[in-house]
């Protein structure tokens, strides 16, 4: 039996976190419970962040959106603000797990698990998401790209929790593209994924590009080289092939039971070719 704390507000949370040894925070538990069962992780006690109202919900703030860490994927998918302003994230969320997993799992959990296969991460990287970290005495912000330091590793301090993520969408992007390759068509862990934001002018010129790949490196992979290769060009096969070749150089995938590194490298580039479908008519 394990002790599980269920704080109903931040004060109760801070008190729980001050215990020795500190209980391990979790939110959703769709990853943690699997590891508890297998014995891969075995903390003495847990503290659940799901019942703290301050950590949930979506609101407009500073021209962007603030998303509480404890907000479930299902709730985000239903949220009109997310659907209207963050279609890239919404698309990724719709491929995440299954309805039961989306009902339990949270965006904060997905971020703190820091798996390269986390489905919300490539869109949040492409959108330049910023995390908000809080402890009893402090509050700080940090770009998501800096927060995640390695597979399963973050810059979270022991006394801190992830309170939320802030995204300021640039409304001028007019292509929002997300694709995930899994072994089956739903309820599948990502083999490779691509999140892409493009601003394509009415004449077909790419004016801005943000690209992020999941599952093809220790953390989400971004490639300024591949982005650069698109700027000022059109969404033609040759242009995308060129960017694809750069992407294949930028990624550093591994072999695992789902796919080989070679396959992941190949499709990391191939996925860019799908952007041809977004050419202005």
């Amino acid at each position: 039996m394990k002790e599980v704390f269920l704080p109903g507000n931040l004060e109760e949370l801070w008190r729980a976190l001050e215990r020795e040894p500190a209980p391990r925070p979790y939110c959703g538990g769709t990853d943690l419970l699997v590891h508890l069962r297998s014995g891969k992780t075995d903390p003495d006690a847990l503290v659940c962040l799901e019942r703290i109202p301050e950590l949930s919900g979506v609101r407009e703030e500073e021209g962007g959106l603030w998303i509480g860490a404890a907000t479930t994927h299902a709730r985000l998918l239903d949220d009109p603000l997310v659907r209207a302003r963050l279609p890239l994230l919404a698309r990724a969320l719709s491929t995440l797990g299954s309805p039961p997993v989306r009902n339990m799992g949270t965006i904060g959990g997905n971020i703190c698990t820091a798996s390269p296969a986390g489905d919300t991460l490539p869109p949040l990287y492409a959108l330049d998401g910023e995390v908000e970290l809080r402890s009893r005495d402090s509050s700080r912000r940090m770009p998501l790209r800096r927060f995640i330091t390695g597979p399963g590793e973050t810059a979270l301090r022991p006394d801190e929790i992830l309170a939320g993520v802030r995204v300021t969408p640039d409304g001028t992007y007019n292509v929002h593209h997300f694709e995930k390759i899994g072994i089956r068509r739903a309820m599948a862990c990502s083999i490779a994924s691509l999140a892409a934001l493009l601003r394509v002018s009415s004449s077909g010129e790419i004016e801005a590009a943000r690209l992020a790949w999941g599952s093809v490196g220790p953390t989400v992979v971004v490639s300024g080289e591949a982005e650069q290769a698109l700027l000022g060009k059109r969404l033609t096969r040759d242009v995308l092939e060129d960017a694809a070749e750069r992407a294949r150089k930028a990624v550093s995938p591994i072999d695992d039971v789902r796919a080989s590194a070679a396959y992941r490298r190949e499709v990391s580039g191939n996925l860019l070719l799908r952007l041809m479908e977004h050419r202005p008519l």
Partner: peptide, 14 residues
């Protein structure tokens, strides 16, 4: 492939 996370069965969409 020791469990259903690694041994993949078809789902309704497949």
């Amino acid at each position: 492939t020791p469990d259903f996370a690694a041994y993949i069965l078809p789902g309704s969409l497949d």
